[in-house]
Amino acid sequence: MTMLHLSTFSRRLLQGLGVGLLAFFLLGPLANLVLWSVAERWYTPFKLPVTYGTKYWEVVFRPTGDAMTSLTTSVGIALAVVVVTLIVSVPAGYALARLRLPFRAAIMLLFLLPQAFPSVAIYINVARIFYWIGLNGTVIGVVLVHSVHALVYSVWIAAAAFSSIDQDLEWAARNIGASPLKTFVSVTLPLAAPGLVAASIFVFLESLDEFTGTFFVGVPQVTTLPLLLYNASMGGNYQVASITALILLVPSIGFMLIIERFLKGDVLSKIGR
């Protein structure tokens, strides 16, 4: 009995320690962000802000402010990236899942390739090429850069979503009179929807967070939220930087909750198969 008690106690202790560490690493920085966002004045040697207030929140949310413009730009770009990647990854994912393509593994690798090189080196060259063809500093240029980056995830997840659908279901639909297109639209796509939604959410979040590519290709004309955050913290304006960071957190947390409900285990388990 004592042994049992002891071991339960030590397990509790370990659990408590784990939760505490997690809280420290996750909530510590978060708490810092929240504090900074409401600190009107805060300087050393004070451990806490000197004056509290919502002045900077008002600055950020002023309709004419930089932050609102950046937010609109960021969301617009992220949505465009979602559309572009869906247009590529639905057919590509379906082909990878269903057709016995030669070099299937090689094709999957091709989509991984952009990840393999140091991204800064790539982006510098992309920026040069975009400069020649007049895409530098345009929203389209940024969307393209984000899309290539996002295709890694989206093609992979789409392929997993499609291969988790039993091909007999498509055959059953064909058998009783549905054309290939109708079968795809009425049987395959609805069953793949959760996976595709998950892929789109990842893509959306990735785009919202993307910094390096936007920095090389978009600056100075296109300012997304991460760039605004960067500019603000470089300029010593920690309040605006913190508020921007908090805004960036909202969709991530919201979508993570959705994904958790949406994604079936069998889709996740087929990723990269």
Binding site: D166, D168, L169, W171, A172, A173, N175, I176, V187, L191
Partner: peptide, 11 residues
């Protein structure tokens, strides 16, 4: 009309 071994009903 075909009846599949695992039925292949649309879930």
């Amino acid at each position: 009309g075909m009846v599949f071994q695992d039925y292949a009903l649309f879930p």
